[in-house]
Design a protein around this nucleic acid. Structure first.
Lengths: 218, 218, 218, 218
DNA sequence: AATGAATGAGTCTTCATTCAT
DNA sequence: AATGAATGAAGACTCATTCAT
């Protein structure tokens, strides 16, 4: 079942094989349920070699997270052309995001599910990547506001919430798109653009939804 | 740290104590990392008693999921008054949702993070609850469409995607609101209503965002 | 599955119910694998009552062995009429033995298998019963020798070995007869009489089998 | 009490050490009462190594049964020379059998007592070996019948019962010889030959023991 | 006469990790 | 560059046994 035990490879190559195996196992079993034995076997190496190159289970998991985070952000970045209109940038980024997560379900599981389920060492790693993405989205919103000639009155933390909601919706849709047979990356992106961009547009034009006045005790 | 060992309680009471402890440990450590020893100690009972009443780690986890799912849906249902306008219903539901998750972070962690990270027995349990909520949201969207005199042309699976995105955004915001110091349930709900309802409103009026025509090879 | 929980019975009756259950469980699962829980449930009583009446697992097992041993020897004794010819006595005893073991397979399992598999406290109990039976057989052999007018030159320990072999063969045939569909107690007894009595007869008449002279080193 | 912890041995050697220890513990304590801890300590290894090589308690026990069964049949087979007369073959086989069981009491306990006391996985293993031995004895009886010019009228299942009785008697005598201080393998074999061969001889010549005619109701 | 509530101690099993080559 | 041999530590689960009523 494990990869054929090919002998004598340069370190860099072996490391990638190990990370490939680890991402697959971690993504499918979860961090705790994954066993170093299984990873080593799938990688086609002996366990001591895994330890020699990657030190420990924690380090190995961290390396997986970093590699997959880098791959995901790289995919998104490559798809976005800074010169274009804000909505076009968002659209391109979303499509790249959905496409990448669909093509790398184990990597996405590692980032979205597994890493967040286990304490600080790992969650922080993903938080960093997520912050980068949220920042990117926030920039787009700002640009859009400028394009719409809106006074920059949208309160700071309101924008943060919006970006958070958008990213959260995207993450959720990624899982949904992966699980739903007919759904494609393009459809998911369209749905989200409809849902989000229109809402954002309204906000830009100052049309906000107003909560009902309540006479609440307590 | 463990609860004081109070002696001789009726079974029903002890079971709740155990579930309380289990939700806390599972929520904080995750399913695999949680140890039955720790749960028993926190519950103030011996391990055999936990097994006598709850059978196994799996069954205990399932019981936690069920209890927390029931509590969450009950909280939301109690807040929504069916006679009111659709946006008001959504608003009330969202506030209850954010308030409940904020007050029960471990329960929310169990439902949102831990249960989904581990295979079918558990994920299915949460999926059932989620389906219920998505159905509720979908109904509201339908009502809104009727109120807006829109022809029921919104394609079926488009609506499913929208509801999915809305729920996903809400889930994401819940985590964000819990982690961000100044954020309150009310704010999170406001942000989401602005983001979502306005977008939905546009859709209802037929103003959709159109993807750019592309000349894509392959 | 357990007996119906009938309330308030005199102690003697309850004890028999418990022993019935215990013999069944011990006979089927073995001493170690049997659990007091299962025994109590099958007996239709709570566990503390079992302990109140029978003290401990060891004592319970010993009580089972004693009861079943007594029942078996009683059955054999009842079948044998001391006045008759030796071969007739053996024949009657064997038939009773095979019949009883066939009717009480769990009891026989307790005596023949389970009790011998676990250390001294229990093995001794069965050894006592077995000694009684061997003594009975030995007496019959002596009678037969007298009837055949043989000088009582058969060496003491040779007789012991013979009786041992006969009893061993009987025990073995009991298991075989229980496991073999068509076999009856009568057939098993006939086979054994043919096998044994003829051999004994020869011995009585001084026709022994002589081992080949060997020039063995070491 | 545990063997000295000798370091770094090839797997095959370690496995034998483990089996040695396991046979001893299983033979003395029984399958259930034996603890993997004790076996590992007696073998002079850590418990994980036992699991690494032998997988589980069940597998370890099965391995013990197989090894001891193979050793016993090998010992008997080596002693029997097919060209010789039937009684000589039986005599040689019996002596080898008694000698082997006397020299390997724990192995014999595993085969005769422990393996049969626990359910199908193990009992079947021993049954196979026993069947082989019974078949061997049956062949000898057939040869003897031919040598005695007897018409092959002995009914099939009568022969089966006879072989069963003979083997059972041998098994029983083995335990008796082991437990009785003065008894030797040679004596046990002599006793059994006298007991059995003479009886068989009579049968061959058609002198069977006839059960008394009975007027049995039902 | 009888039981619901409770536990100390032990069992099998697995895992991350290292040493010697 | 790579591995066969080995283990300390821990985790899920069970069991015989006892209180308090």
């Amino acid at each position: 079942m494990g990869a054929v035990r090919t002998k004598r490879m340069p370190r860099a190559v072996r490391e990638q094989q190990m990370l490939d195996a680890a991402v697959r196992i971690f993504g499918q079993r979860g961090y705790m349920a994954a066993s170093m034995d299984e990873i080593a076997e799938l990688a086609g190496v002996s366990k001591p070699l895994v330890y020699l190159y990657l030190n420990s289970k924690e380090d190995l998991f961290t390396a997986c997270i970093r590699r997959e985070a880098a791959a995901l952000t790289a995919a998104v970045r490559a798809a976005v052309r800074p010169g274009l209109a804000a909505d076009r940038q968002l659209w391109d980024g979303l499509r790249a995001f959905f496409a990448h997560t669909a093509e790398h379900p184990d990597g996405w599981s590692v980032l979205h599910l597994q890493a967040r389920t286990h304490g600080e060492p790992f969650a922080a790693e993903v938080a960093a990547m997520r912050a980068e993405i949220v920042a990117f989205v926030t920039r787009l919103v700002a640009v859009a506001a400028r394009e719409a000639h809106r006074d920059p009155d949208l309160p700071e933390h309101e924008v943060a919430g919006l970006a958070e909601a958008l990213v959260g919706a995207a993450e959720s849709l990624a899982a949904w798109a992966n699980a739903t047979p007919g759904a494609t990356a393009r459809q998911a992106a369209t749905t989200l653009m409809n849902f989000a961009w229109a809402g954002l547009g309204n906000l830009m034009r100052g049309r906000m939804w107003t909560p009902p006045a309540e006479a609440e005790p307590a």
